[in-house]
């Protein structure tokens, strides 16, 4: 096999890159969609950070802005109608939002990668899986045809695709759902990114396959000491794999906490209500607690705390003009609610 030269050295150096700075720090990110029906505020000041080797789950319902946040971090937002209107996305100290498209593309390929829910539409149906993988190595690493093929097989092996040597000549539709997800993971990891963003990676899969894929992701993350952002609505999956959780509602992170704390003692009424509203496999409850009403329309987010119309704790102060501040409850624990004490029960 031809020598794979030092991968990071091959990449042009980003100006201002500081290897000691935090891996990823998203600060007060704001994204708007300007549509016919008005301005939809999809992300309204999202702040979170991610360390190497850590799994951060961004948890929320559809329309809460979690996928848009990921797209803005990746720089793949549909624009127009989407616009980043504020905030910073710091990767090792470099603000990605200030980079030109060329540098951005370099970061996207090499440093931050993403996988999606629907692998079939994320892969090009007219090229073989092997070709699509090898192309990455040829384009970004300047590898020869033969060595890029070898590397592709090696990678498919790593994501546990049986008989990888034969399967690189197959087209995406010839793979089953779970296998396709593996192929997409292989493509995302091909250039050894430091951050992997997984947007609902197992939502379309069956539980037994979901378990395989989550296991694989955890293992690859461990081997590579990679930062993983898991975007999901599934509180079960999160409990199994995340280190920390950021709960998102109406474009804001309303609570952020280590995984054990959030399940044992949620501090935000929304988190608490969500946990009480899901049926549990491990015990048969009587009646499920219901969050009344609907998530707000992004063109018309309620004033004050955006959760107040659905919240059991809401009082006059929650309806005011100012959203509740973010309270630091404990190290690494933040929640935005006027009544944290009541929710926590202290």
């Amino acid at each position: 096999m031809t020598p794979v030269t030092d991968i990071k050295a091959q990449m042009d150096v980003l100006p201002g890159l500081d290897p000691r700075a935090p891996l990823l720090h998203v600060d007060d990110l704001r994204v708007e969609f300007r549509t016919r029906d008005g301005v939809a505020k999809a992300v309204n000041g999202a702040t979170f950070y991610l360390n190497a080797g850590e799994t951060l789950a961004i948890l929320g319902e559809s329309g809460c802005g979690k996928s848009v946040t990921a797209q803005a971090v990746m720089g793949i937002l549909d624009s127009p109608p989407g616009h980043v209107t504020g905030g910073r996305v710091l990767y090792r100290g470099v603000d990605l939002l200030k980079l030109g498209e060329k540098d951005r593309r370099k970061v996207r390929a090499n440093r931050i990668a993403m996988i999606f829910q629907d692998a079939l539409s994320a892969l090009n149906p007219v090229y073989t899986v092997g070709f699509q993988l090898a192309e990455l190595f040829r384009k970004h690493r300047g590898m020869s045809r033969a060595s890029s093929k070898l590397r592709s097989i090696e990678l498919l092996d790593q994501v546990r695709i049986p008989a990888a040597k034969d399967r690189i000549n197959d087209y995406p539709h010839q793979f089953s759902g779970g296998m396709r997800q593996r192929v997409m993971i292989a493509m995302a990891l091909a250039l050894d990114p430091e951050v992997l963003i997984a947007d609902e990676p197992t939502t379309a899969l069956d539980v037994t396959v979901q378990a395989q894929i989550m296991g694989l992701l955890a293992e690859l993350q461990h081997q590579r000491n990679m930062g993983l952002i898991l975007i999901t609505h599934d509180m079960g999956v999160v409990a199994d794999v995340a280190d920390r959780i950021s709960v998102m509602y109406a474009g804001k992170i309303v609570e952020e906490a280590p995984v054990y704390d959030i399940y044992a003692r949620p501090a935000h009424p929304y988190t608490k209500a969500l946990l009480e509203s899901i049926p549990r496999l491990d015990h048969k409850g009587r009646q499920l607690n219901v969050i009344r009403g609907l998530p707000p329309s992004l063109t018309d987010i309620p004033s004050g705390c955006s959760f107040h119309p659905r919240c059991g704790y809401a009082r006059e102060i929650c309806r005011g003009d100012q959203p509740p501040p973010s309270y630091q409850i404990a190290p690494h624990r933040i929640a935005s609610c006027h009544f944290i004490r009541e929710v926590l029960g202290v």
């Binding site: 037994t208 979901q210 999160v238 409990a239 496999l281």
Partner: peptide, 15 residues
């Protein structure tokens, strides 16, 4: 048994 073992349970203490 395999199905049940694969279902994620929203309780990190069981991890």
């Amino acid at each position: 048994q395999a199905l049940l073992s694969a279902v994620p349970v929203p309780d990190p203490r069981l991890r």
